[in-house]
Design a protein around this nucleic acid. Structure first.
Lengths: 234, 234
DNA sequence: TTGATAAATTATACCGTAACAATTATAATG
DNA sequence: CATTATAATTGTTACGGTATAATTTATCAA
């Protein structure tokens, strides 16, 4: 792991350990430099990372402050960590309905920029949160990148496996979102009624080299779907 | 304007002018250094900015590539630019229903971290996109920060006014999102029927110094609400 | 042709330094 | 006491340089 990432993690830990709240002040740059025995630019880079993550914000001439959104019980919509990481506070389980190798739909092929004759892993899951249905998820993985999957991996964290097991680096993702009405099939999986509202999210995940490897379509149970997004200005 | 921001803008312009597409390669760092006559670190900073904005992605050992999400007709959900900037492709108008100074609701006071006796500007608007209702918007502005508003400002871009007119710097925002059912009042404003689905978004905007100045509650017409979010890994 | 290995290309990490700009604290002024 | 000017604090920008790591290309051997 890179130095500035380690330091960022250490600072996050510091915030946790000292139970710092929204607006609380961190030690000044010079102190952090001395404490971690690195140059100013390294600390700066660490803080930049934490700023991107929405952990701190910096005010020139004033200091470095803790940033926290206030509401509890909301799911962090993105951050390419998969679900696991974000939802430590929740009780999450999932049920694998389908897992196989197949040819992609036209839509999936298009979003993964592969040919319709190429193989994909298809995974269909229902996720539960605190005993309620959270979402129905259909994912297509480019098999030439994600070369192997099994039921165990799929019911655990796929993203952890991709990173650690396959040694791949996840880069960025595009997320398309709209509200609609549940189809009969979706409603059945989610234990709701046809025609009720849904949040539909399609995501395309890319590796750091820009290659899309995962196209997922998720239908959320609107009753369980409270999301939070933290953003920064440019 | 800062140097690295100018260069970032110039690079964006370069991408436009050359009509570069997703995956196309930009000149290498050294070339960009020479072209703009700045040091490596400045170019790097510019590219970092463009990476945050989702304009490019960089691959070590390979090059700098254009990143574009593919789907058209989607509204970019965040990026604290207000609506105007994001929606140049759309025909947008808005109608101001209410504009006055008042005491905040308990909820608004809480989110703006002010006292219930402090003054706020309250703005209620309906926005239209291509002739259809897009959303109903209720905003509370901390009057001790946003000291003056009028109908003209409000029907143009408030955020532009905050930046240019008031000289304030917008920092970050927290965005809370859920799906629900339209109330009678909301339906009336949006020209829909009670009980139809809605996307409800609450946003708290902060200045760079961390002070919240705008708490907004937006109800989207689900038929017009297709959003895109671009994210990066950490 | 394949596969391995080396070399070239290219971005990233990290260090150090100097100047800069926004905020806050302090002192001076009326 | 309020206002203004000045100084101290503190993060930000920009420069330069060296070393490193990932990717692509070239080379060579089988």
């Amino acid at each position: 792991m890179l130095k500035y990432q380690q330091i960022a993690a250490a600072i996050e830990k510091y915030i946790e350990d000292h139970a710092l709240q929204q607006g609380d002040k961190l030690p000044v740059l010079e102190t952090l430099m001395a404490q971690f025995e690195v140059s100013k630019s390294t600390i700066t880079k660490s803080l930049e990372l934490l700023e991107k993550k929405g952990v701190v914000f910096q005010v020139r001439g004033s200091g470095i402050f803790v940033r926290r959104h206030k509401r509890k019980g909301y799911i962090s919509l993105f951050s390419n960590q998969g679900f696991k990481k974000d939802l430590e506070d929740f009780h999450l389980t999932s049920e694998v309905i389908e897992l196989n190798v197949r040819k992609p739909s036209q839509e999936a092929a298009l979003n993964l920029t592969i040919d319709e004759n190429d193989d994909v892993y298809f995974v269909k899951r229902v996720r539960y949160i605190n005993g309620q249905t959270l979402c129905l998820e259909e994912s297509y993985y480019n098999k030439s990148i994600i070369t192997y999957l099994n039921k165990e991996i799929v019911s655990e964290s796929i993203f952890h496996y991709i990173r650690e097991g396959l040694g791949l680096k996840i880069g960025f993702s595009d997320l398309y979102l709209h509200v609609g009405l549940l189809t009969e099939e979706e409603a059945a999986y989610l234990g709701l009624k046809k025609g009720m509202p849904k949040l539909h999210v399609e995501t395309i995940f890319h590796l750091t080299n820009g290659k899309p490897f995962d196209f997922s379509k998720i239908t959320y149970n609107y009753e369980q779907s409270q999301f939070v997004i933290q953003t920064n200005s440019f």
